[in-house]
Nucleic acid binder design. Sequence first.
DNA 1: TAAATAATGTTCGTTTGTGATCGTTATCCT
DNA 2: AGGATAACGATCACAAACGAACATTATTTA
Lengths: 254, 254
Amino acid sequence: MVLTIRKPEIIAIARREGKVTVDGLVDHFGVTPQTIRRDLTELAETGELERVHGGAILPSTTVNIAYNERRMLNQASKVDIASACAKRIPNDCAIFLNIGTTTEAVASELLNHEGLLVVTNNINIANILSSSDQIDVIVTGGQLRRSDGGLIGDLAQNTINQFRFDYAIIGCSALRQNGDLMDFDMQEVSVSKTIIRQSDHVMLVADNSKFDRKAPAFVASMQSISTIVTDKSVPADCKTQCDVSGTDIVYASS
Amino acid sequence: MVLTIRKPEIIAIARREGKVTVDGLVDHFGVTPQTIRRDLTELAETGELERVHGGAILPSTTVNIAYNERRMLNQASKVDIASACAKRIPNDCAIFLNIGTTTEAVASELLNHEGLLVVTNNINIANILSSSDQIDVIVTGGQLRRSDGGLIGDLAQNTINQFRFDYAIIGCSALRQNGDLMDFDMQEVSVSKTIIRQSDHVMLVADNSKFDRKAPAFVASMQSISTIVTDKSVPADCKTQCDVSGTDIVYASS
DNA sequence: TAAATAATGTTCGTTTGTGATCGTTATCCT
DNA sequence: AGGATAACGATCACAAACGAACATTATTTA
């Protein structure tokens, strides 16, 4: 057993991207392929990764493939956004993390925070955060939606109602030009509304693609949002709306 | 103790960056590599960091390793027991799966059942069952216990109270010779009691090692158990008690 | 202030992770 | 299918990192 200093970062990349390549890690760490191969072999021996030709992947049992692919969408933007979001969250506070791939990225970025109480209705986030002993995780109950690991239904909502949060990190399916948050799923809408009501600061994490999408159900207007963290410049209409409602806009950069 | 000033800062850096290097700390503190090595060695001895060549990393995996080892204990017996248990559970019914490595094994064996509604307070079980589209999974809320993926606290109990189960599959920390189920954790005891109260059939899964153990908290007597699934023959006292209370004994065989 | 103790720096022999080479094996492409 | 190409694991040499022992400096205590 050798335990290299690169191990945690390799695991983090694998968690984030679902896989790692030898070449990618060579570029990332500036070492030879041989060294990376040794690292991956070790990680495979301890069962933390599964070795494949050219790299390694997450152990197959834990991953939902369709979901994992969606997770890869705009991966780079999501990580940037998540990182910017995590930087604005202090230690020792109570936060809620909602369903969504971007909020999952935020969870990963929060792993080095201390003294957090995190409530979530996303079982993937619970899995991610369970590796930190500095973070108390509370899971809302609810029916498990296999497509994305979300917990939905009355149970979730009732649980959320019992808490007050310093920060809520939420995503949305789509953002209208006027800054309205929209979603596909009615059940999620009522959960999101509850979260917003119970939180001092509401941070919306949304990459640029949300502006091109449509979704039927109204969640909230920009007025409810304290901060929006995104990757590229937001449409003018939305920016105006943010000014009116006093919403901070944070642009993530890599 | 040598480290008075640098220790908290080293830990802080490690938490923030996921790792520390000897060189980096040398620059940071303006001391010699040897001093840093001494610091890191001490931090490693107290388990606060894990030493690697060139620096140190966070010991993030320790909890999971401990649990994984426990899961492997008596693995063969557990699979046998789980298989026998799963065979006695029909399709299209509502069941509860409690915290425990053996109940996790049962979850794996249930993957080919159809039309099940499974409620669980074990996040690992939720992960396992999420790969079947024939099983509806409901997760109780609660605080996530990192050591075993259990969800505990009032939230869990309140959720369970809202359901009635055809079958409950429960484990226990120890079984007394007279057939009393015992547990280590008071919080789990009250959850288990609730489960038993809400279920038509209660199946206890317990490998033989439970008879050799002691645990302080009383969960239930054999009278509450409909079926006990185990691997080897149970002690005479316990068997008598089963006869009295009408508890079926099922011996798993591979 | 002097003695005692702890912390840090220095030196040196030892360990070990890394890179290079090479023969083998898996994957890709026609 | 079968050759081309890339990835792989084993082995070895080397340099960096390591720990032990001792010297030196800071800090505490009497």
